[in-house]
Design a protein around this nucleic acid. Structure first.
Length: 329
DNA sequence: AACTCGGGGCA
DNA sequence: TGCCCAGAGTT
């Protein structure tokens, strides 16, 4: 019998401490696909909120493939990076016709190097390295490799997966163990004292954070002006999102002024590397339609797919209107 | 390898 | 306001 190694300690820790996440109960192609697409650049806690709802509406790959894109966008509303919703829908339509093998997974829409590896390891249990931001951070600290050396880290993870398989572990478990360690123990703030790897860890033994390379991002400030055309019955004019957020609905950009100008308000939101200041001008109009194609929607109970800026704008519009009513005129 | 894609939450 | 997060696609 082999002596318990540091590696075994990691795996014991993993089997004892891993989180019970919805998409881990059933590692089917569909559940892994949906969860991985949602998890791209998105935190686990946020995905948990959306995953169940999405699964309830589209329980199988086929139901998703047959759905309309607008329905998919609606369930995605608020999750961000809406292109993922379209790409997931396209991937589903492709997958009901043909399931790829091996590296061909990367050719599917929305599925890159990471997600392809995740599907291969988690669904098909292939011995491939799944290298996400968590695993990169863990390996960089553990083996003393700069986190920017992606190729080196990728090779290292591949070795670890093979080593794990030789010791009798499954590829999906080895990959998930490193990922989970990065999420629960070796996160930005590391907790070395509870880490199953710490006795062999370059960073713990060295005592300093030396291997994480952080690149500085530049944040651009942007301004945008929108118009809220409000009817006396509380409906507001919404249009298909312009420029960005394809498939969602929003207030129109300010190009025309009509009716009675009631003033306005401003809000700010961040997106990727931008900080946007949105000014909303409110106009009280009768039934006449603005020039642009759109729909009258209730300010409070809008049934269209909205992004966060649109939701926030409508919320503030409600408050704005309420405030006006309390003013003597 | 670097850049953009335009998200959302959090401290 | 800056930063993080189970990245992908393009040049």
């Amino acid at each position: 019998m082999k002596k318990a190694s540091v590696f075994d300690r990691l795996m014991e820790w993993f089997f004892r401490s891993r989180r019970d996440l919805p998409w881990r109960r059933d590692r089917s192609l569909y559940s892994v696909l949906v969860s991985e697409m949602m998890l791209q650049q998105t935190q686990v806690s946020r995905v948990v909120e959306y995953y169940g709802r999405f699964f309830k509406r589209f329980p199988t790959l086929e139901t998703l493939a047959e759905a309309s894109l607008n329905e998919v966008y609606q369930l995605w509303g608020g999750l961000g990076y809406y292109r993922r919703a379209r790409l997931l829908h396209e991937a589903a339509k492709s997958l009901v016709k043909d399931i790829p093998r091996g590296e061909a997974w990367e050719k599917l829409p929305g599925i890159g190097k990471y997600t392809a590896a995740a599907v291969r390891a988690f669904v098909f249990n292939e011995p491939v390295a799944v290298l996400d931001a968590n695993v990169k951070r863990v390996l960089a600290r553990f083996r003393g490799v700069l986190s920017s050396h992606e190729k080196r880290l990728s090779e290292l993870m591949q070795l670890l997966v093979c080593y794990g398989v030789k010791r009798g572990y499954e590829p999906r478990d080895v990959n998930e163990a490193f990922m989970e360690l990065g999420a629960l123990v070796c996160s930005k703030k590391r907790e070395c004292m509870i880490c199953p790897l710490h006795l062999a860890c370059c960073t713990f033994l060295g005592g300093e954070e030396r291997y994480l390379v952080v690149e500085k991002k530049n944040y651009l400030r942007v301004e945008e002006r929108c118009a809220a055309f409000l009817r006396p019955d509380g409906k507001v004019w919404l249009v298909p999102s312009e420029r960005w957020r394809e498939g969602l609905w929003d207030l129109p950009l300010l190009r025309q002024r009509r009716g009675e100008a009631l003033g306005g308000f401003a809000l700010s939101y961040g997106v990727t590397n931008h900080r946007v200041m949105r000014h909303v001008e409110v106009f009280l109009v009768e039934d006449e339609k603005p020039d642009q194609e759109g729909r009258w929607e209730d300010v409070t109970g809008c049934s269209l797919a909205l992004g966060s800026p649109a939701k926030k704008s409508l919320e503030m519009l409600c408050e704005f209107v309420a405030m006006l009513k309390n003013l003597p005129r």
